[in-house]
Write a protein that binds this DNA or RNA. Structure first.
Length: 185
DNA sequence: CAATGTTTAGGCTGCT
DNA sequence: AGCAGCCTAAACATTG
């Protein structure tokens, strides 16, 4: 099984879907959430193939972000202004890839319409204030699958995975908090 | 205005 | 053949 590594692929197209590449990028970030431009950067830093034809693949990537329910937009905090939201993974979508492989998804992650409707009003609220972060619960270790292409590390590697981004990015009654086994306590 | 985000549409491939 | 997952193009809206 091919795995992304420092010297893999070169100019060849990596065997990962945009969904996989985006999930890698998001999950390798400290807060498990990234703005669009950082997702682009992660991918083109690691996979030289994506240093070309940027208009094409970035359009596809944006399509995937909006189209797939597994990606969720988190509004910026008012004190961190900027263009565009942060993107994260839906907690229920973390087992989308068979046995940790990012090559092919088991099944498309699709929310029921009723779930979407329930989520929508909450996502429109302005982000609220902080509370102590729930402690990490391992679920998905993409870090073990990826290493940066250039000889440098973007993040310290043994990062404990947490299912949720830090709560201060999320509205107080965000469903994700409830979805998190520790946040519910 | 350029970057970001949403949506529709068509094509390709592998699987059953 | 039909379906599911994926890729690409493109029109269009929103936002900083």
């Amino acid at each position: 099984m091919p795995r992304p590594s420092r010297e893999s692929y070169g100019d060849q197209k990596p065997p990962y879907s945009y969904i996989s590449l985006t999930a890698m990028a998001i999950w390798s970030s400290p807060d498990k959430m990234l703005p669009l431009s950082d997702i682009y950067k992660f991918i083109s830093d690691r996979f030289p193939y994506y240093r070309r034809n940027t208009q094409r693949w970035q359009n596809s990537l944006r399509h995937n972000l909006s189209f797939n329910d597994c990606f969720v937009k988190i509004p910026r905090r008012p004190d961190r202004p900027g263009k565009g939201a942060y993107w994260t993974l839906h907690p229920a979508a973390l087992d989308m890839f068979e046995n940790g492989s990012l090559l092919r998804r088991r099944k498309r992650f699709k929310l029921l319409k009723s779930d979407k409707d329930r989520l929508a009003p909450v996502m429109d609220q302005a982000p609220t204030t902080a509370s102590p972060p729930p402690r990490p619960k391992r679920s998905f270790d993409i870090e073990s699958l990826i290493s940066p292409e250039p000889p440098r590390r973007l993040h310290p590697l043994p990062v404990p995975c947490c299912v949720l981004p830090p709560p201060y990015y999320l509205p107080q009654h965000h469903p994700y908090r409830l979805a998190h086994p520790l946040a519910a306590v």
